[in-house]
Nucleic acid binder design. Structure first.
Length: 469
RNA sequence: GGCGACGUAGCCAAGUGGUAAGGCAGAGGUCUGCAAAACCUCCAUCGCCGGUUCAAAUCCGGCCGUCGCCUCCA
């Protein structure tokens, strides 16, 4: 079954054919590191992580590159406000972001280039563009000449003359065309600067990704991704620079994720309506965020609210329910056969959905069908290889979505310390139940429930877990 | 003003021509000492109007509404 991907460039869903059979190069625009990352950043990271995981599942060897923007106006401003060195500040938040990625179960990229370490590639590219007439100097700056690029606007669907009217761009009369954008910004006092053939300064925003892509993945990449708020101007300008420089198609498939919506609005730094990754992970698991995101489609906005998060948490508990140990001893027979079939069907349904432009919602539906089949089989006493295989398939497919399906870690020191006492109470309650002291037994259970500890009596004894109300 | 997306049950959400996946919540039931969990059953005609078609949530037109980009942004 062939994978199909929606390509922003052509505005259609196309069969995925990589440049080189069996290999995929992927570049995803990373964050500007000047503040704590929020769950919108997490969403982008999670989505492209799963794109990468699914491509790997399909048998491709994926090279995945994502950058940090560590030279930028906002970083410089923030650093000046705090009396810090801009690169030190950027490094601080980049390191923090690495921890977030790990917490969110995002697989590490093969390369994490940073602007500050790619200067020679950037200046080399600007020089090349200037030589071919795609760039011009202006008072220490260098600008890209959009009128020289005949298909400028092809990604975002804008035309140069239309782009002029009604925009909020502050027109810089010095520029040849209002759409011209900075490739290099001449140094100003108090700003970090690097030497270049155009004088001291720093790169414009867009050139970095073009240069890093070129450096680490070559002149053409299979997939270039990012949030849909980057389509214009960032990705449009990347295309302009890269294709003017190399004369080749920059990226074959442009993928853009939708925005996380908080109270009906895009979550963003400038709106100030953000929930940081730290904040989220204090209350919820990474699995919950992933499930919340993948319940919808990656290109559409995702509704984030206390209700949708809670719904995701409960759905997760249901997925985990299928991973409980077998209870019987039936390894063959009608029930075991039914489970074997359901396992096969779940895999087919999952991959069919994912092949259709990463229809994760459909994939998750397949997971729930498998959960039901496993739980039914367990109740019927099925055990053995088919039971294990069904659970393993569930783990594997959920793993493509980056779901761990592990119980929320309760590694807080206080909770760890409480364990022996909880075990003791559970043990005492078992004795009470054997003595049919129901009132007392129920009092223990209810009291523990009030402390966020849930008890369940099963045929194999009582199990307990932490579960916030 | 320009470009674009979306509007499916109480909530989230898939489906893009043949009479509506899945999850959460809710109702009833099985199981249980009682619960919990699990399992079974029930719960929508798809924003509004008009058109095309044997047949539309799915195509076309209009309207209403929400959102994104056009400025830094995942």
């Amino acid at each position: 079954m062939a994978l199909r991907i929606y390509n922003t460039l052509t505005r259609q869903t196309e069969e995925f054919v990589p440049l080189e059979p069996g290999k995929v190069s992927m570049y995803v625009c990373g964050p500007t590191v000047y503040a704590d990352a929020h769950i919108g950043h997490a969403m982008a990271a999670i989505i492209f992580d799963t794109v990468r995981r699914y491509l790997t599942y399909k048998g491709y060897t994926v090279k995945f590159v994502t950058n940090f923007t560590d030279v930028d106006d906002k970083i410089i401003r923030r650093a000046n406000e705090q009396g810090r060195d801009p690169l030190e500040l950027a490094n601080h938040y980049a390191e923090k972001y690495f921890r977030h990625l790990s917490d969110l179960n995002v697989l590490p990229a093969h390369v994490y280039p940073r602007v500050s370490q790619e200067m020679s590639w950037i200046t080399q590219m600007i020089s090349g563009l200037e030589k071919e007439g795609f760039a011009y100097r202006l008072d220490g700056d260098v600008y890209f000449r959009v009128t020289k690029d005949e298909d400028y606007g092809k990604l975002s669907g804008r035309k140069l003359d239309e782009a002029l009217s009604g925009t909020r761009i502050e027109e810089d009369a010095r520029k040849e065309h209002p759409g011209d954008f900075a490739l290099w910004k001449g140094a100003k006092p108090g700003e970090p600067a690097w030497d270049s053939p155009f004088g001291p300064g720093r790169p414009g925003w867009h050139i970095e990704c073009s240069a890093m892509c070129l450096h680490h993945l070559g002149e053409m990449v299979d997939i270039h991704g990012g949030g849909n708020d980057l389509i214009f101007p960032h990705h449009e300008n990347e295309i302009a620079q890269s294709e003017s420089y190399t004369g080749k198609t920059f990226a074959r498939y442009w993928m853009h994720n939708g925005m996380l919506q908080l109270a009906g609005e895009k979550m963003s730094k400038s709106l100030g309506n953000l929930i940081t990754i730290d904040d989220f992970l204090k209350e919820h698991s990474a699995d919950a965020l992933r499930l919340l995101i993948f319940t919808g489609h990656y290109r559409k906005p995702v509704t984030y609210s206390p209700e949708t998060v809670e719904s995701a948490e409960r759905s997760l508990a249901r997925l985990r329910s299928a991973l409980r140990p077998a209870q019987g001893e039936l390894s063959t027979g009608e029930q075991a056969e039914a489970l074997r079939l359901a396992t096969e069907e779940a895999r087919v349904a999952f991959t069919t959905a994912m092949d259709d432009d990463f229809n994760t919602a459909g994939g998750i539906a397949a997971l729930f069908e498998l959960v039901r089949a496993i739980n039914t089989a367990r109740t019927a006493g099925v055990a053995g290889p088919f039971y294990a295989a069904a659970q393993q398939t569930l783990r594997e497919l959920a793993g493509i979505l980056g779901l761990t399906l592990t119980e929320p870690a309760s590694d807080a020191a206080s909770e760890v310390a409480a364990r022996p006492f909880i075990e003791l109470l559970v043990s005492v309650r078992r004795d009470l139940r054997q003595a049919k002291q129901w009132a007392l037994a129920d009092k223990v259970r209810d009291s523990l429930r009030a402390l966020n500890i849930v008890l369940e009596d099963t045929p194999d004894g009582t199990i307990w877990r932490y579960e916030a109300e």
